[in-house]
Write a protein that binds this DNA or RNA. Sequence first.
DNA 1: CTAGATCAGTTGACGCATCAAGTAAAATCA
DNA 2: TGATTTTACTTGATGCGTCAACTGATCTAG
Lengths: 146, 146
Amino acid sequence: MQTWLALVSVLIRLPAALDGQLQRDAGISHFEYQVLAGLSMTPERTMRMSELASFSDGSLSRLSHVVGRLEKRGWVRRTPDPADGRYTLAVLTEDGWDKVVATAPGHVEAVRGFVLDPLTKAQTRQLRDIGRRIMRAIDPDDTCLG
Amino acid sequence: MQTWLALVSVLIRLPAALDGQLQRDAGISHFEYQVLAGLSMTPERTMRMSELASFSDGSLSRLSHVVGRLEKRGWVRRTPDPADGRYTLAVLTEDGWDKVVATAPGHVEAVRGFVLDPLTKAQTRQLRDIGRRIMRAIDPDDTCLG
DNA sequence: CTAGATCAGTTGACGCATCAAGTAAAATCA
DNA sequence: TGATTTTACTTGATGCGTCAACTGATCTAG
């Protein structure tokens, strides 16, 4: 019960704190950051919309709206996949890359400050395992986690 | 890093899973449930709006909107606090009490299924401590947690 | 080779959260 | 006592996420 109440607060307040940091320092939401960061991590800075959606834990519809906005800001562009016209490729532009490079350090520091630093090494390891167990309970046939 | 990726998924998917269960089974959001459950836990089934807001980890504005909806559904009513006219008391109605009683078991079971059951006893204890440490890092002068 | 089914993505309407501005009651101070 | 400030809350405009309906491309059966 105590565990649960502690967790509920974290579930609400930690995302709010992280969103706040990104919004203040970079003018983007955490979801937008995940999208840009996801693209930046691939060799070609490119991903299919559906891949990107599951990577960033969002629906395809949500991603479509968000990428639309990111496109207007000049950080992403879309092209049909030459290999299969049903897929759409989201590509990080040069400006988008710069945005990620400028934003990442502050965000990583916030994550450290809020989550990693307050915990012991053992707790950090435990938390990784705890997270995986919970994810398995929520969605047994999920393949996102290593 | 692995810890962080695991945690991000939990932060997004666990609330979604819990919201989903409540929405399907009771037609209310997790926040609405927290509000009703909070009121149901006090002896007089009554709380000041500002107390209720901090209990349920939401802004006063958000609570005001939500209580407005709950009032329309007949589960809560509002009266000015006789002791101080600035405060508004939110009171759980009989129908509201019945709603909580009908909803709680399914929700508790979902929490068990998603969070508590997959973890060992030691992990559950660890998670409580982890949650508190994170909350302290986010908001050092927060008094919500025991 | 073509008719239907399926897959990937987009779009628009609706609901909820957030922010800024507003109201009303109590406290503070002149 | 009256004027100002503070506190508690409400309201309305705006923006984002969700759901259902849609478009177009590819696959499959006959």
